[in-house]
Design a protein around this nucleic acid. Structure first.
Length: 575
RNA sequence: GCGCCUGUAGCUCAGUGGAUAGAGCACUGGCCUCCGGAGCCAGGUGCCGCAGGUUCAAAUCCUGCCAGGCGCGCCA
């Protein structure tokens, strides 16, 4: 339509109705109100300025041209202060149904990614404890982003970066070792800044099971290391299980420790050194990140000779780039936002545009039960685990809730609401819409009513406003996905689906699809016409209307399934 | 002190520079002999944090304030 209006503008100039030599690309969008037509544009107001004429006048000129040039247009009207409101011919809408049937599960998919490779890194929690709600939000988001980007033509790999090196791991090892000693009646203290959660017991138990009391005789350093390694292994295994149960799996699990052993950190830093971006000061080694947009330089190797976390991260991202990824996307907790500039500096240091790395920040989750906040204290090891939540409300509800808000805003997650099986619960509202349709088609089959292909139906029978609204909303699916992918914002999908489900329920309440059973034989009198009169208790639908509606609803079902699928949420046949 | 994020209806939140700013929840009252009532309908609410600016047009862009959150380590 945008190009149609552009064409109208050019034609108007050719005919001497407009003077300008160049026109802006006409912006077209869906008007807020139905009375304003199907599409609208404000170009006239921009053009009016350069033409030095009133917007209404210019709009009028464009409208005239558009009517004659564009066959899709049914009517064009002009509204103050200068909007063009276009109403399309009904066939345009019916074409949407054909497209959905033709494309099926791929409707709305695109090729904007052109097969470019994306490495999507998310969750990446330290293996020092079970996953909690914040990780769950990141997991749901990452999974949805992966599916969304794949649907947009990107080749996506999901990766979990295991932070199995550094201080936190040392503390874990200390904590487990201390408990191990305690379990064998030796005196010991769990370090104050170590880990104290109940899960430490299980970890220690596992170490005992595997090693017995062998570690008592080993040197303390070896024993400590063994404790740490075994604990971390077990935790990674459990994290992986939790994620599988949540419906999230990764292509690769990348170990930070491996960056040390493989020499990749040294390599990456050597590369930076060659580029003159590393220098020594105060006995430490620094990365000259201020040369890019970072506010100051950063230490990569401490005075004591150990690498900093940044060093591993630089090496890790260097490695990602070397593996041939065109785009790197990281899902991080919002408390790491200050880290973004220095990571982008690293990307630039290796000679790439900083846009190559996009970081999606995820804000905290506030957990409620029946409106009351559940306090969590990570220090005391008391927090609600992802596993606990998934067990309680189910993976579907949990994912949907995590994805209902923009990722960079705080999220309220009410466990009672997520469990509720009613219209107040958005997940059920949407899933119910799908199950309801499945059930409808089941009934249709049982009654011997065929569900034909789009081509076999007389779609012109779809004239009720509720039907047209449904079709229009279906037509918005591809655009919504495109925006969602561009902005890395899958919450748009949840809103879209709630709206679609709402439109369906309204339609379904108001109109019949299958002929009433008592109606038995088709009534020739009501051919091509629907009567719905509650007071008379007569409900009749012609065969033509039944078929057209079944065809329409089939496509609604496809979109509900596709949309839920992109969120990683199931579309149940029955509930 | 500096930086980032957020400020929209009673609550939780949508809102690619466009028209009279929306949804869900909560509240009140209705609607099931027939395709799933896990549903539908009807009721009202806003100095879009404040003040300037850019624009034909600002919740949206710019500047300055105010409030809340987060960050500002040779921690990860």
């Amino acid at each position: 339509m945008s190009s149609a209006i552009a064409g109208a503008l050019l034609q108007a100039r050719e005919r001497g109705l407009l003077q300008s030599t160049c026109f802006p690309r006409p912006a077209v969008d869906f008007p807020r109100k139905e009375e304003w037509g199907d599409l609208s544009s404000g170009v006239a107001m921009v053009v009016a300025k350069q033409e030095n004429r009133s917007p209404l006048e210019v709009a009028q000129v464009i409208a005239e041209q558009l009517k004659t040039t564009c066959p899709l247009v049914k009517t064009v009207s002009v509204a103050p202060p200068g909007f063009l409101n276009v109403t399309l011919r009904p066939d345009c809408w019916f074409a949407v149904l054909e497209a959905i049937e033709r494309m099926g599960d791929r409707y709305g998919h695109s090729d904007v990614g052109r097969g470019q490779r994306v490495l999507l890194e998310f969750v990446s929690a330290n293996p020092t404890g079970p996953l909690h709600m914040g990780h769950g939000r990141g997991a749901a988001l990452g999974e949805a982003l992966a599916r969304l980007l794949k649907s947009s033509g990107y080749a996506v790999d999901k990766e979990y970066y295991i932070n199995d090196a550094g201080r936190q791991m040392k503390l874990l090892a200390d904590s487990v070792y201390a408990r191990y000693l305690a379990m064998h009646g030796r005196e010991c203290v769990v370090p104050e800044d170590g880990y104290h959660g109940d899960y430490l017991k299980d970890l220690t138990q596992a170490v005992v099971q595997e090693q017995g009391d062998r570690l008592l005789t080993a040197g303390p350093e070896d024993a400590r290391r063994t404790c740490g390694e075994l604990a971390a292994q077990k935790l990674v295994r459990e994290i992986r299980e939790d994620l599988v149960r949540f419906g999230v799996e990764f292509e690769t699990w990348y170990s930070e420790a491996s960056l040390f052993s493989s020499g990749k950190i040294r390599e990456a830093l050597a590369d930076l050194e060659q580029r003159g971006l590393v220098f020594a000061k105060d006995g430490a080694t620094w990365f000259r990140s201020s040369q890019f947009q970072d506010e100051k330089d950063r230490v990569v190797c401490k005075q004591d000779g150990h690498y900093t976390y940044l060093a591993s991260d630089i090496a890790y991202h260097f490695d990602k780039l070397r593996r041939g990824y065109d785009w790197l996307i990281n899902v991080w907790g919002a408390d790491h936002h200050g880290y973004v500039p220095r990571m982008q500096a690293a990307i630039q240091a290796f000679g790439h545009a900083k846009e190559r790395l996009r970081v999606v920040l995820v804000q905290m989750v506030r957990l409620l039960r029946g409106g009351k906040t559940i306090e969590m204290s990570k220090r005391a090891g008391e927090f609600v685990t992802l596993r606990g939540v998934v067990d309680e409300v189910g993976a579907d509800a949990a994912k949907f809730f995590f994805l209902m808000r923009r990722s960079d805003t705080h999220l309220e997650f009410d466990l009672e609401l997520a469990k509720q099986q009613s219209a107040e619960n958005p997940v059920y509202y949407v899933q119910y819409a799908h199950a309801r349709l499945v059930s409808l088609f089941r009934t249709a089959r049982d009654r011997g009513v065929p569900v034909p292909a789009v081509g076999e139906a007389s779609l012109a029978a779809l004239r009720q406003p509720e039907e047209i609204r449904l079709i229009k909303h279906l037509s918005g699916f591809p655009g919504m996905l495109e925006a969602s992918a561009r902005e890395l914002a899958p919450h748009r999908i949840t809103f879209y689906l709630q709206e679609l489900a709402g439109l369906l329920h309204v339609f379904y309440y108001k109109h019949r699809v299958l002929p009433s059973q008592s109606d038995g034989v088709e009534d020739p009198e009501c051919n091509d016409r629907e009567t719905f009169d509650v007071s008379n208790e007569s409900v009749r639908v012609s065969r033509t209307v039944t078929i057209a509606r079944l065809v329409l609803l089939k496509q609604v079902q496809v979109i509900l399934r596709n949309g839920l699928g992109l969120l990683g949420v199931t579309a149940p046949e029955k509930m």
